[in-house]
């Protein structure tokens, strides 16, 4: 069933879009990842304009992270103080990112820029995930406990402007979380991702936060940042497609709930390799488009500005 997206200005197949939403939502339910870093490139490969894909995906992540935050609030697993500092940094990052996005878009190079960012990120995440799951599988065959310890003290903890974070039982400078939030804000606005895949490891290994509050706090920040990002994209670039967002949110929610239930039955590490392969394939497809001789040297766009 074909429907016409009002802002993206392209016809898409509703069923394909829903299946995509459920599929990516399912993966995010299984692995506890946001799914933005898979959804945005898939939307681009489907023919949705890059600028619309990024802005609309930010909107979808607002919805999925909000429902996630609600679940974590019940378990009191959100460090609000830390979350708020991350949000402050993130707002600046997002505002800067949207501005960078607008400038590059006006030069007509946004596809190239976003593809480039994705190739780097998907490539490195895919490879890291692949190696990590392989070694976990090996380790599980020859049991030997060897996990990365959470660092209690490093140079980060020596910086000034120290603040007490009660929930996280930390006493650290406000600068590292501000900076971390800033980076995540830029990523969210340029790539249409929540940034959990960087935020979560950084919270554990750099800031030294206890694992039990990490997910809730990251979702808390991601919700605010993606909400701000999609608002900024809507006003600066006018690229949020609400109809597309609506379909993706519905598909994503259903998929995530299914994914969260199925997890128990599957061997996590083996699906993780599968996910790594999917990520690497998407990366490869994007890279081939940049490096191989294109089928079509010329392209036609309507409107003079982009």
């Amino acid at each position: 069933m074909q429907i016409f997206l009002p802002i993206a200005d392209v016809p898409v197949n509703l069923i394909v879009l829903l299946v995509l939403g459920v599929g990516v939502g399912f993966l995010s339910g299984v692995f506890g990842i946001g799914g933005g870093f898979l959804m945005t490139p898939l939307l681009i490969l489907m023919g949705i304009p890059t600028a619309v894909a990024v802005a609309t995906e930010a909107n979808q992540i607002t919805a999925s992270s909000f429902s996630g935050v609600l679940a974590h609030l019940k378990r009191r697993a959100v460090d609000f103080k830390m979350g708020n500092i991350l949000v402050i940094g993130g707002l600046f990052g997002s505002a800067l990112g949207v501005e960078i996005f607008r400038i590059i878009k006006s030069y007509g190079q946004i596809e190239l820029f976003v593809s480039g960012c994705y190739i780097i990120f998907l490539g490195s995440i895919g490879i890291l995930m692949f190696i990590e799951s392989l070694s976990t599988i090996k380790r599980s065959r020859s049991p030997q406990i060897n996990t990365l310890p959470r660092k209690k003290h490093n140079w980060i903890h020596g910086l000034p402007f120290k603040i007490k974070f009660k929930t996280s039982q930390l006493y650290i400078s406000a600068f590292p979380p501000l900076f971390l939030g800033f980076v995540i804000g830029i990523l969210a606005s340029i790539m249409g991702v929540g940034g959990g895949f960087i935020l979560i490891p950084a919270m554990i290994y750099v800031l030294g936060m206890p694992t039990k509050v990490v997910i809730g706090t990251s979702l808390y920040q991601i919700m605010f940042i993606t909400a701000f990002t999609s608002f900024m994209h809507a006003t600066q670039n006018k690229t949020v497609d609400l109809l597309l967002a609506f379909i993706l949110i519905i598909g994503g929610v259903v998929g995530a709930q299914l994914g969260a239930r199925v997890t128990v039955r599957l061997k996590a590490e083996e699906i993780r390799i599968l996910l790594a392969i999917i990520v690497l394939l998407v990366c490869l497809k994007l890279a081939l488009d940049l490096f191989l001789v294109p089928n079509e040297i010329f392209s036609l766009t309507y409107g003079a500005s982009h």
Binding site: N59, Q60, T62, A63, S64, S65, F66, S67, L70, A71, A227, S230, F231, A234, V240, L242, A245, F246, I249, I250, V253, Q257
Partner: peptide
């Protein structure tokens, strides 16, 4: 668009 996303996220939860 932000309100709609929050509403849908809340409803889903």
């Amino acid at each position: 668009s932000v309100m709609l996303a929050l509403f849908l996220g809340f409803s889903a939860a």
